[in-house]
Design a protein around this nucleic acid. Structure first.
Lengths: 196, 196, 196, 196
DNA sequence: ATATAAACGAGACGGTACGTCCCGTCTTTCG
DNA sequence: CGAAAGACGGGACGTACCGTCTCGTTTATAT
């Protein structure tokens, strides 16, 4: 199998890197509202058409910048479901309780929900932690540690939804106590109890 | 107390109504992205300065339009906590599982979180259902129907957060089954059990 | 008779003056090719939309700049047709044998020939000298100094056309001798002769 | 002597023809303003660098397209100067009283006057008729049919200049009557008369 | 009645950013 | 090794809205 070499001049990887760097810097320094294609072009020294060649608008560019260099949230290995889940929730909340967290929420809200780009962003940035949580819960259930008598999808939403709820609505702060309380309440609902 | 009648022409109440009507229509017909002050002025036949006299920008105008004529979500009276809560969740989800729901999320994400206007919008449109839920839970606890051994604030977030989570992220649909599952899991976590 | 006062904020005369000044300066300093709406906006400190409010494109702006402050070419009063016409032709050629002359030709060539703006430019800048020449010839004919046995329109084109011909084609220079020769040949063609 | 076979891929003669064909088509279909290097490349299926290898910019390309396949205007053989000159003027005006005529004027106005390409275009397309006219006049003078007592260069400009004048300024139409009138007036000025 | 004053509609203003077109150059692979 | 394909940095285009401002008009109270 030959590599599918296309004819013309190949895309300049450096240019894309500079664009994402500039977008990321603007995002952290000035915020989502200042992330305009114009500003990114000026700051990165790249022509606007080069940006539009890869991203359809400022929203997609913001998503790309937020995705680049994002390791994702993984479950910290713990001996029990409680410790593993709490560890993950704490790092998740730590990661989102910053300016970047709100920017992610704003970006997601502003993005075209049908776009493929948006879906990728959603899966990588928003739902990866939820998937990791799903794995933790399924393993624990296999060990007999918990009973998944309810809809697992809803349970996952009840664990991870509150984080974005507080982030977006801002009625209460995101802190580690919040993480622990969520885990405690969630585990209560899946407790393997004698009285059943 | 005498009414503080100022000299000069009084503000035209009709103008505000026409502005909100136009804003609402644009929101439902064209979406949040098309709700510009310019468009509202053109559609309502009102001058731009008249709009700016009442709202600082298009975001506030969107919030005002979304608030006007919104009755809020109240707990349907039920005999048990489960039925009351499930009734409320169902109507909440029904209200948000529309275009308007996503517009509310977008508006909230785009709004200045510090603005007084935003806070009012948040309380009236987003948090009113959460407050109603709090009342239901407290009443049930007073009746001994449930035990609130965990942080009530977190519990409320776990009930109402998932709605906005699915609305914003869009990974699964909002339907009545979702409402019932949330209530079931939540009640599991506050069940008054013999083994405690 | 009341002046027809319009409602809104009146156009800022100063802004238009600054725009024309900037356009004129760019035209003389950098040439027609550099007269972009963007550059005029930057130089005049005026927003681009303000320029587009008055002129449809860079061509019209160039025409406006070339028209502003242009006194037009008038016939120098002379005792005879020959001296009057020669005086006018000399000043016409002097006015066009500069960078500005070529810019006028380029502008006219680039302009939409149907536009009202173009017609006004044509009449004021290009054809005003031709009209003045027509008046001179008609007066001389009335005095019996010449006989207009041929088509006057064609004769006028033969007097004034060569100026633009040399200007545009550039095969020979524009100088005062050229002016005198044109007049001499033209008068030969309208000479009132005994042998007729 | 070996044939000078150069190494590598030989220049594709067909490419130039396709380029000129495409340029010509665009000129006639869309006009001078749409004749961009990009459009010609797309239409002809040729790479942009291949175009730039032969022409420096769109203006030169336009000139090349306008020159290609242009037979030039030659003097129709006539028995007298009047008939020969009138025949030539009529065919000249017929050739220019079309869209192509105005495109030639626009192209010439937009071209760099110093470029060698421009000079070639000027000589072949614009001045060839003037040179043919010069030959006619000199022959007639040699026959004693006319007297060239005035500057021949100016006389030629007065014959051919008006055509471009009307073409560019557009104040009156180009028609055969115009051709005849020009000839009539010009001959008047060079008439060999008894009274001299 | 008549002045005074506030809010109105209209609309031009200086600006920012948009997304597109085309420029002329450069880099890569193919023939 | 020239031709094709095509991405690049760059400049300008013409448009949409922004939020501010200045008008002339309307509508009310206060004199």
């Amino acid at each position: 199998m030959s590599p599918p070499k296309r004819r013309g001049r190949p895309p300049n990887q450096l240019a894309q890197a500079r664009i994402l760097k500039a977008a990321h810097d603007i995002l952290t320094e000035d915020g989502f509202g200042r992330l305009t294609v114009e500003a990114v072009a000026a700051r990165s020294g790249v022509g606007k058409p080069t940006i539009y060649r890869h991203w359809a608008n400022a929203s997609e560019l913001a998503m790309a910048a937020l995705m680049s260099g994002d390791p994702g949230i993984f479950a910290g290995g713990g001996t029990s479901l409680r410790s593993a889940l709490a560890g993950q929730m704490r790092s998740l909340i730590q990661a989102f309780a910053t300016t970047r967290g709100r920017q992610i929420a704003m970006t997601l809200a502003a993005a075209d929900p049908e776009s493929e780009f948006t879906k990728a962003f959603r899966n990588q940035v928003i739902l990866s932690s939820r998937e990791a949580g799903r794995a933790l819960l399924l393993e624990a259930a296999a060990r007999g540690e918990i009973m998944l008598q309810h809809d697992l999808e809803v349970l996952l939403d009840m664990i991870y939804g509150p984080v974005f709820y507080r982030l977006l609505v801002g009625h209460r702060s995101l802190d580690t106590g919040f993480a622990d309380s969520i885990v405690a309440i969630a585990l209560e609902a899946v407790a393997a109890r004698a009285d059943r």
